[in-house]
Design a protein around this nucleic acid. Structure first.
Lengths: 207, 207
DNA sequence: GTCTATACTGAGATAGAC
DNA sequence: GTCTATCTCAGTATAGAC
C-alpha cells in the first residue's frame, strides 16, 4: 500500500472516531495527513469509500478473531452446545480488546453500527459472522423460536454498539473503568437477557 | 405559534426521521414546507436549533408520560419498591406508543440518542427523567452498587435506542410485529439483564 | 499509476431591503 | 416576519504534471 493511502487512512480513522463521520471534512483529513485533496478521490472514490476502507482495515481482523474464539469454544464443548456466556465473550472480547488499543476506532465502529452509516458493508462483512453466532445461540437456547432469538440479538447488538461508543455518566468520578471490565459487565447483563423467558405475545397493559 | 414555523417543524420532523439529520438539507425542508430558506434561520437560528425544537415538541410529552406512569406504579406499590419490570414499562411504553403513532419521529428520537446529536439537550431534557428512574432502580435493586446500576442502565439505554430506530432482520417474513410486542420483549430482556449478578471485577480470560 | 491544481455544485449561514 | 442576494465551506469531478 502506498504511503499516501496509508496516511489518509490513519488520519481519517482518527478524525472519524474522535469527531464523527458527518462533521469531519475531507479537507481536515488531508491537512492532518499532509496530502492533496484529490488523492482521497483517487484512492477511495468518495468520502463514503474512504469510510468503508477505514472500517474494513480493522473490522476484518476483529471478525476473524470472533470466529476463531467461537471455533475454540465449540471445540472445547465437544458435542455440547457452547454456553451463552462464552458465545457473548467470543463476540465482545475482540471488540473490547480493539477498544483498549484503539479507542477512537472502537468508537467509530460503534457509531457506524448504530448510525447505520454503511448498511451494505455491514451486511457483507458482519452478516456471515452474525449468522454463525446466531447458529451457536440457537444451539445454546433451543427452546426459543428463531424470531425470539432474532429480537434478543437485536437488543444485544444495540447495547453493544452503544457500550462501544459511549461511556456511562458516573457521578462518582472514581478510577476509570478498564475496557475489559466493561466487557465482563456486558456479558453478564446480556447473557441474563438472553435467558429471559419468551414473551407470551401479551400486550403490556396500563390503566 | 406562527403557521410558517409549524410547517417547518412538520416537514423537518418527517424528513429527519425518514432520511436522517445529516443528509436532510434545509433546502429540501423548505421545499416541502413551502417556505423561504431564511425563515428557518429566523425561527430556529440554525439547522441544529431546528432539530432541537423538533425533538422537544414530542419528547417533552413522552418524558412527562414516563414520569406519570412511574408515579402511578409507585403509588400502587405503597412503601414497597416498584419492580424492575414496571420501571422498564414506565420508561419504554410511552416511547413505544409514540412509535406506533409516529414511526418516523420515534426513529428520529432513537437516532438522536445513539448518534449523540444533541448532548446538551438530552442532558437538559432527559437527565431529570433518568435520574428519577435511576432512583427507582436503586430501590428495586438495593444490592447493586451505583456504578453497577449505571452500567446496566447504560446498556439498557443503548438497546432501547437501537430497538426504537431499527428493526431486526427476520428471515421468515411473517406478519409484521406490532410495536407493543417489541416493548414486551424488550422489557423481558432488560429486566433479566438488570437482575444479573454483579461482576466480580474479574477479567475475562481466554487462552 | 500517482498525485496536484483548480473548478463545479450544493450545503448552511448572514445581511439587509421590504 | 419574510425574501433576495451573497458568503463560506463542504464533497466531488476533471485535466494534466510527473
Amino acid at each position: 500500500m502506498t504511503d499516501t493511502k496509508q496516511k489518509i487512512l490513519d488520519a481519517a480513522e482518527k478524525l472519524f472516531g474522535e469527531k464523527g463521520y458527518a462533521v469531519t471534512s475531507l479537507r481536515h483529513i488531508i491537512s492532518d495527513a499532509g496530502v492533496n485533496l484529490a488523492a482521497i478521490h483517487y484512492h477511495f472514490g468518495s468520502k463514503q469509500g474512504l469510510l468503508d476502507q477505514v472500517i474494513m482495515r480493522k473490522a476484518g481482523p476483529v471478525n476473524e478473531r470472533r470466529l476463531e474464539l467461537l471455533d475454540q469454544f465449540e471445540a472445547e464443548a465437544g458435542s455440547d452446545p457452547v454456553s451463552i456466556e462464552k458465545i457473548l465473550v467470543a463476540f465482545i472480547l475482540p471488540a473490547a480488546l480493539l477498544r483498549e488499543k484503539h479507542p477512537e476506532f472502537a468508537k467509530l465502529m460503534g457509531r457506524v453500527y448504530s448510525e447505520r452509516l454503511m448498511p451494505e458493508i455491514i451486511r457483507r462483512n458482519f452478516q456471515p459472522v452474525t449468522a454463525r453466532f446466531l447458529a451457536a445461540l440457537r444451539r445454546a437456547l433451543p427452546d426459543f423460536s428463531a424470531k425470539e432469538l432474532a429480537w434478543k440479538t437485536h437488543f444485544a447488538l444495540g447495547a453493544m454498539a452503544h457500550a462501544l461508543t459511549a461511556q456511562p455518566e458516573l457521578n462518582d468520578s472514581g478510577p476509570a473503568e478498564p475496557p475489559m471490565a466493561m466487557a465482563t459487565r456486558l456479558v453478564a447483563f446480556l447473557s441474563n437477557g438472553f435467558r429471559a423467558p419468551a414473551t407470551r405475545e401479551k400486550e403490556i397493559e396500563v390503566k
